[in-house]
Design a protein around this nucleic acid. Structure first.
Length: 426
RNA sequence: GCGGUUAUGGCGAAGUGGUUAACGCAUCGGAUUGUGGUUCCGACAUACGUGGGUUCGAUUCCCACUAGUCGCCCCA
């Protein structure tokens, strides 16, 4: 036996027939929803200049510090396989001067593979597919609600029930900084009593200390300053509006003042949609998003606000499986051609083509199998009809058409096979 | 990057320091000289992840590596 030693790269996977139909269903629905919500697709390159992510994602983030697939091309340029979609979409928005488009805000979506060099586990891959939307050019809280609604509706449309929306506000830049400073001075004097991870978080991302599982019972946790108390008037008013719109839309949500997103660019609204399905695994986040009012400027564009989300198709599929949602109906083929003998076999080549040209799905045997095995194959492929062409039929210039469900069979004229097939087809 | 766990034919899955490594599924053939299911019979497959070590002898014991898987960090 041929021993193949080459496998898929670590953390990647083949999506095979039988499974791929679920993906196609999600993809089709996502596009359909984007049409309804009036988001238009943008396709950006799979790799970008490394600098884009350094600036766009933030050089203190894990993504940039340890997860990027970066390489130098032959011209000595540093390029990186995109670890997320927003930075690239914003780059394209600026580069193509979409801020000058007549239609504002600019509403875009993307779907495609992303790459992060991480240790694989349930729900985490090195190559994974994200579907995401970005609404750039509006600071209206109604569009925050629209973006969230789009994601929630999509999950519901495909049958997910055990999903939960969690939201928070990170406030504007000023609110964020005030809160951060308060956190640092709150924890700093006694940071030695916390775990090593938290000690690292103090400078890097002090909000993360708040949801540490190790130190959750430490007395300083209970008295820690909450972002909510540090939102200035504008920020808390904005947050209130978003919540009000969500309520108007009938979208239940949970507020979590400790919800922090891992990327540097978020301001105001931050949200996650999680699965609560049994046995889903440790990673429950299906979708993450938020507002990024400083990002366009950061990447070199005008001062323009934006909001978006990204969701993983891998986790989408996993959630559907965890909730036992059945998606695609396994469709059978219209006709399987069974033939006996050399001459009959030759005939099926053109008969098959006739059926297919007329729009039917049709198949025949290519392994020179016995009639019984051919019928088995027909049965396996869930054929509606089987057309049998043997020596007897050839002699009489007929072909036998069998309806598999009932077992009934009729003889029809070989010369007008397609026409007769159409007449019999129900 | 850290930790747990696993690795036997196409798939699932037993098992042993020592001649031919069970079994089930699938596949193919036959019983049925041209008809799906069941049943019965038969056939088939260069199978012990890779590399070292211990041993007279390793698929089995030890180590490393690789990969899967699960978890930590973090995230979609």
């Amino acid at each position: 036996m041929y021993i193949m030693s080459i496998r898929v790269p670590r953390g990647t996977q083949d999506i095979l027939p039988g499974q791929v139909e679920k993906w196609q269903m999600i993809e089709a629905k996502a596009r359909e929803f984007c049409e309804r919500y009036q988001y238009r697709e943008v396709r950006t390159p799979i790799f970008e200049q490394t600098d884009l992510f350094l600036r766009g994602v933030g050089d203190t983030t894990d993504i940039v510090q340890k997860e990027m697939y970066s390489f130098e091309d032959r011209g000595g340029r540093s390029l990186t396989l995109r670890p997320e979609g927003t930075a690239a979409v914003v780059r394209s928005y600026i580069e193509n001067k979409m801020f000058g488009d007549a239609n504002q805000p600019v509403k875009l979506y993307y779907m495609g593979p992303m790459f992060r060099y991480e240790r694989p586990q349930a729900g985490r891959y090195r190559q994974f597919v994200q579907f995401g939307v970005e609404a750039i050019g509006s600071a209206d809280p109604a569009i925050d609600a629209e973006v969230i609604s789009l994601a929630m509706s999509l999950y519901k449309e495909l049958g997910l029930k055990q999903i939960k929306l969690v939201i928070n506000s990170l406030g504007d830049k000023a609110s964020r900084k005030a809160h951060r400073d308060a956190l640092v001075s709150h924890f700093k004097p006694r940071i030695g009593e916390f775990c090593g991870d938290c000690q690292g978080r103090l400078e890097k991302n002090p909000m993360r200390i708040l949801d540490c599982k190790v130190d959750r019972n430490h007395e300083l946790m209970k008295t820690a300053p909450s972002i909510i108390d540090y939102l200035n008037d504008h920020s808390s008013h904005y947050y209130a509006k978003v919540k009000r719109y969500l309520t108007d839309l009938g979208i239940p949500f949970e507020e979590d003042p400790n919800l922090v997103r891992g990327l540097d660019y978020y301001t105001h609204t931050a949200f996650e949609i999680m699965s609560g399905a049994e046995g889903f695994g440790a990673i429950t986040t299906l979708c993450g998003g938020g507002r990024y009012n400083g990002l366009v400027e950061e990447i070199g564009g005008p001062e323009i606000p934006g909001i978006g989300f990204a969701l993983s198709l891998e986790r989408f599929v996993a959630a559907l499986e965890a909730e036992n949602v059945e998606l695609p109906v396994k469709k059978g083929i219209d006709c399987y051609l069974v033939s006996l003998g050399e001459e009959a076999k030759d005939h099926t080549v053109s008969l098959l083509h006739e059926l297919r040209s007329a729009g039917y799905s049709a198949e025949r045997d290519y392994l020179d199998r016995k009639i019984k095995a051919q019928f088995k194959a027909a049965d396996r492929s869930n054929a509606k009809y089987v057309a049998v062409l043997g020596e007897d039929e050839l002699k009489a210039n007929k072909i036998t058409l069998k309806t598999m469900e009932t077992g009934d069979q009729v003889e029809i004229e070989l010369d007008s096979f397609l026409e007769k097939f159409k007449e019999n087809y129900k």
